[in-house]
């Protein structure tokens, strides 16, 4: 032990002057740092959504129950329409509704199109080729010069993109785009608590609504914990970490977060129960339908019926 009482000797050593030296190289932003920024952005976006829902606008003014009913009708329509241009029309209607709700067009479209390439386009992509689904060739990519067989499976005489395949893929992507767009519109223009209450009106099981409500309340705490963990690590790091170290940290971090989040979720729930929560969401604005709500619902129904009728007439 050194003179410092209970401190070991190495802890009492004083550093010399501050003279950074050695070769410098620019520190590239690691995947981990980008994750950190991403977490912050997610929290900001969610708070922004609540702000949009609180703004005055055409969609925000509609009674949440009426809104949920209207959006359900339009969602049903998106899967019933058989012509791509009508589905595109439905998508454009949702964009127009977003504009009327004073949601910036770029923000709205980004939210929708961010997920579509992932979930729809990738799934639909193989079906545009004749080797997966036979059809009339639209564009021949590679002429094999004779039939090519893979065991019992015939690949045909060429690799081509087919008309039927493209039509099917476009239809799928448009349907997903229109549906996601309507969903995002509903979520952005309705305060979360009111949306949950509206779901209860439609007899969505209480347990399901409770889980949704807990997830939302608690996602910010999880974000804050994750951010703190990342920052605490960054503050103890000298120089950039190798990808291998990053991966190890992520794996360990996920485990730690799971444990912490479990303890915290119990505490959050206890705090809710302590203030009278019994599983039923309650909000300040009691639902009241006005004439404008019925006008909105009637317009939505008329739009749906006209598009559906048009779809059948075109054949």
């Amino acid at each position: 032990m050194a003179d410092g009482g209970m401190l070991p000797a190495w802890m009492t050593e004083r550093p010399g002057g501050f003279e950074p030296g050695g070769p410098d190289r620019a520190v590239r932003q690691s995947a981990l740092a980008r994750t950190l920024l991403g977490l912050g952005r997610l929290a900001r976006d969610t708070i922004y959504s609540e702000k949009v829902a609180a703004r005055p606008g055409l969609m925000q003014g509609v009674d949440p129950r009426v809104k949920v009913a209207g959006v359900l009708v339009l969602l049903l329509l998106a899967s019933l329409l058989r012509h791509w241009y009508l589905v595109l029309g439905l998508y454009l209607v949702s964009v127009a509704m977003a504009a009327a709700a004073s949601i910036p067009a770029w923000f709205f479209m980004k939210r929708v199109w961010m997920f579509i390439p992932l979930f729809a386009a990738v799934i639909a992509l193989p079906s545009i080729f004749n080797v997966v689904r036979d059809g009339d060739p639209l564009w021949v990519i590679w002429d094999f010069g004779g039939e090519v067989r893979l065991g019992p499976w015939s690949l045909g005489t060429s690799l081509a993109i087919t008309q039927q395949g493209v039509r099917g893929a476009v239809m799928l992507v448009l349907r997903v785009a229109a549906s996601v767009s309507l969903g995002v519109l509903l979520a952005l223009t309705t305060r979360w608590n009111e949306l949950l209450r509206a779901l209860r009106v439609f007899h969505v099981p209480r347990l399901f609504v409770l889980i949704l409500s807990m997830t939302y309340r608690y996602i910010f705490l999880l974000l804050a914990m994750a951010t703190e963990m990342f920052t605490a690590r960054a503050s103890r790091m000298v120089g950039p970490a190798s990808p291998r170290e990053d991966r190890r940290f992520l794996a360990a971090g996920m485990g730690a977060l799971l444990g912490k989040s479990h303890a915290l979720s119990e505490e959050v729930y206890a705090a809710m129960v302590s203030r009278g929560f019994d599983g039923e969401p309650v909000t300040a604005s009691r639902f009241r339908t006005a004439a404008a709500d019925w006008v909105w619902l009637a317009s939505t129904a008329t739009l749906a019926l006209s598009l559906l009728a048009g779809d059948r007439i075109i054949g």
Binding site: I47, N193, E267, A271, M272, R275, V282
Partner: peptide
């Protein structure tokens, strides 16, 4: 609660304060 974070779960301060009275 000791951990104020566990007690704050509403989107705004106003909603947070209204939570108890509304649920009662």
């Amino acid at each position: 609660f000791q951990n104020a974070d566990a007690q704050l779960f509403s989107p705004t301060v106003r909603d947070e304060v209204a939570f108890g009275p509304l649920h009662l």
